[in-house]
Computed example of a mutant assay.
Amino acid sequence: MAVKKEWKKLTDFQHARNNNEMYFGSRDEHTQTVLGYEGGKPVIQTHTWIPAVFTAFREVLDNALDEIVTHGHGDRVDITYDMANMIFSITDNGRGIPIDFDEEEQQYAATVLLSETKAGRNFDDRGNSRGMNGIGASIVNMCSEYFQLDITRDKKNFTQRFSDGGSDLHIEDAMILPAKKNAPTGTRVEFKLSSKVFPRMDLPEAFVRARVFDVALCYPQVRVFYNGKRVETAGTVERTVFPDTKPIAFTVREPGFISQFWLVPNFAKDGSEMSHTLVNAIPTFNGGTHVDAFKRKFFSGLIDALAPMSKKRRLTPNRSDIADGLLVFNITEMNAPKFDSQNKTRLINEESSKIVERALAEPEFFKRVIKNNADWMRSVGGFGGSKVV
């Protein structure tokens, strides 16, 4: 008598589509107040989006940035987003994904890399790559209505199309033709996410545009285009984002880790505290160990530096007084970042916390903050019109 099996085994394709939250985060609506840009200047915006849809877009974009920034090939990325049809495309002018035929796999390298999980190049020395485990782009492929791959490399054009095959990924035969003379190398990926996997695909265009602007801010040496138009910056964060203000700036540098902080007092008119942090150009909407450490040490260090004046005037400034309306804007570039999950909303490297804490151990920094921001200090903790020295 046959025993009824009480378990089953899913293919990678089936698992990616049935359990997408494991890879890309929630498929439910998420509403959050984030930083946006108007005319290049920061503004507070509230957006509602599907985290898994945004992660899918980011996974393919991250691959292009890894090729240009981490591996040093190419200097341009073109991004298009058709919100009406939920079609994305990302093009880079790097070397192009390898297209050689792999005898062991009996498949082209590009096919394996974009259709099978746990295949990639960032498993050993990751450097400052965004990719972690060879899962992202292949899962995007499996969760798409179609996924089109166009590569120019080794004087050849490689084209392949993938689509929903019902119970498995349908892979069309690759087409390989000679490239035109002097044709630039690179990779182009176009995909349309499947409504079977993502019943809701809320992803506001303004939100995507702001995240593309983040990339241009992080990498001014890269030419970034969005929907056919160059994303212009003034070369530095100060000149681009804060041309009319003088933010408090602080930079942390150690081998394999650079974290820049800009603080703007009284930024949020409702008095709320605002943070915007980018780790290797990835927006970590829930911050991270590095930002937590910075806030902890900055607030306590500034209160300690104010202590003599506070005691003299019988005032007791606290963290809320300093944080009132404060914007903390951070860009971090580091080796081997670790995130809370595949959707990368929070940095979890504990060493990052220690590095930031060490950098903020110098009392002279806080004395300079007090001296150079007298107007702000007068508004902190009831100092009023008192002279700040």
Rank of each mutant, 00 (worst) to 15 (best):
H15T: 09
N18W: 06
N20G: 01
N20L: 08
E21V: 12
F24M: 15
S26T: 13
D28L: 11
T33H: 04
T33P: 05
Y37P: 13
G39R: 12
G39Y: 11
G40P: 04
K41Y: 05
H47P: 03
W49I: 06
I50P: 03
P51Q: 05
A52C: 07
F54L: 13
A56D: 04
E59G: 08
I68C: 12
G72F: 03
H73P: 01
R76P: 00
V77I: 15
D82F: 09
M83I: 12
A84K: 15
N85I: 02
T91E: 13
G94H: 11
G96F: 05
A110R: 09
L114W: 00
T117E: 04
A119T: 14
D124A: 13
G127P: 07
M132P: 01
M132E: 12
N133S: 11
G134E: 01
G136I: 00
A137H: 11
S138V: 03
R153P: 01
D154S: 13
F162W: 01
S167L: 06
D168V: 03
L169Q: 10
E172T: 12
D173I: 00
A174W: 08
M175T: 15
M175F: 01
A179E: 03
A183H: 06
R188P: 01
L193F: 12
K196A: 07
V197T: 15
D202A: 15
P204W: 09
V215N: 09
A216M: 10
R223C: 04
V224S: 09
R230F: 05
A234E: 11
G235T: 12
V237Y: 02
V237K: 12
T245L: 05
T245G: 03
T245A: 11
T245S: 15
K246L: 04
V252L: 06
P255E: 06
F257P: 02
F257L: 02
Q260T: 10
F261D: 08
W262Y: 15
F267R: 10
F267T: 11
D270L: 10
S275W: 08
T277A: 14
T277F: 08
I282Q: 13
N286S: 12
G287M: 01
G288H: 02
D292L: 01
A293L: 07
S300A: 15
G301I: 05
A305Q: 12
P308D: 08
M309G: 02
S310K: 07
R314D: 09
L315I: 06
T316P: 00
N318W: 08
N318P: 06
R319E: 11
S320G: 14
L327S: 02
L327N: 07
E333F: 10
M334S: 07
M334G: 01
A336E: 14
A336K: 13
F339V: 03
N343R: 06
T345H: 08
L347Q: 13
E351I: 06
R358S: 05
A361Q: 12
P363H: 14
K367C: 02
I370P: 07
D375N: 00
V380D: 03
F383W: 10
